[in-house]
């Protein structure tokens, strides 16, 4: 067993874990932050995407202990003061989700795409950058629209 400590959504947390505990298991099973999903066992679907130290990663493909001392942001950490994050609002406004299973990962990847490409990111870039996020419902079209709209609304953030 190991003790792991990190900062999750602005709060210091620690826990007793097995060495093999994946970061996504630590979030879901220890911290009960079940917004981060698991959709595959091949690291391909992106339902588990979160931010660690400011960049997107697949939390199913990182050990919890590898995040020791890191700053972690999950989908639960985006909204503040009772208001959706602009990217969440954009998914809602643009019908960017149907069943919602892929959505937490899509939103976290969307925010990461804007962080790296700015608020005017073009459609081709969004589509290419979503290569690691799979959606079985929407056909992606409205997800891409949502991310472009969210990018504009995130503006100077």
């Amino acid at each position: 067993m190991l003790t792991v400590s990190m900062n999750v959504n602005g709060q210091s947390v620690s826990g007793e874990i097995e060495e093999r505990t994946l970061l996504v298991q630590f979030l879901r099973e220890h911290l009960k932050l079940t917004g981060t999903h698991v959709g595959c066992d091949t690291s391909q679907c992106g339902a588990c995407v979160i931010h660690v130290d400011g960049v997107s990663i697949k939390s199913c493909t990182m050990l919890a202990i590898q995040a020791e001392g890191s700053e972690v942001v999950t989908i639960e950490g985006l909204a503040g003061n009772g208001q959706l994050h602009p990217m969440q609002q954009a998914f809602k406004d643009n019908h960017g989700l149907q069943c919602g299973f892929c959505t937490p990962g899509m939103v976290m990847s969307g925010v990461d795409i804007v962080n790296r490409n700015g608020s005017e990111v073009d459609e081709a870039t969004v589509r290419k950058e979503l290569e690691g996020n799979i959606c079985r419902c929407t056909g992606y079209h409205n997800i891409v629209k949502a991310i472009q709209a969210g990018a504009k609304d995130m503006g100077g953030q």
Binding site: G46, S56, K58, S109, R116, L130, E131, G132, N133
Partner: peptide
């Protein structure tokens, strides 16, 4: 290579 999240690790 892969996708942005894979490239970050």
């Amino acid at each position: 290579i892969g996708d942005p999240a894979v490239r970050n690790r």
